[in-house]
């Protein structure tokens, strides 16, 4: 499916949230990960890959995204993990 990712719109992008996806980008790149969000301004995709005690965050900028494909649905645990991933826990968001 070769659609225009940049023009897809929030309702289309929202369908991929929390799912494990394959993103094709640039000339011949592929990235796998759990999709945390798609920026509605730039269409950039944020993917997470969890390791033992850390996570790798991968931001693919919107204009490079060629195609996004769902590989797997999340279980409730993963949904919660993604939902709370960037929420401020101890660090304040704003500078004083």
């Amino acid at each position: 499916m070769q659609c225009n990712w940049l023009l897809s719109g929030p309702l289309h992008w929202f369908r991929f949230v929390d799912k494990q996806v394959r993103v094709k980008a640039g000339k011949d790149e592929e990235h796998l990960g759990w999709l945390l969000t798609v920026d509605p301004v730039s269409a950039s995709v944020v993917l997470l890959n969890f390791r033992e005690d850390a996570a790798l965050v991968h931001v693919v900028v919107g204009h490079s995204v060629k195609n996004v494909e769902v590989l797997q649905e999340p279980d409730p645990e993963m949904t919660e993990r993604l939902r709370s991933f960037f929420l401020p826990l101890t660090t304040p968001i704003l500078d004083p």
Partner: peptide
């Protein structure tokens, strides 16, 4: 930029 990565 095509993409960027960082560790959390």
């Amino acid at each position: 930029v095509i993409s960027f990565t960082f560790d959390m």
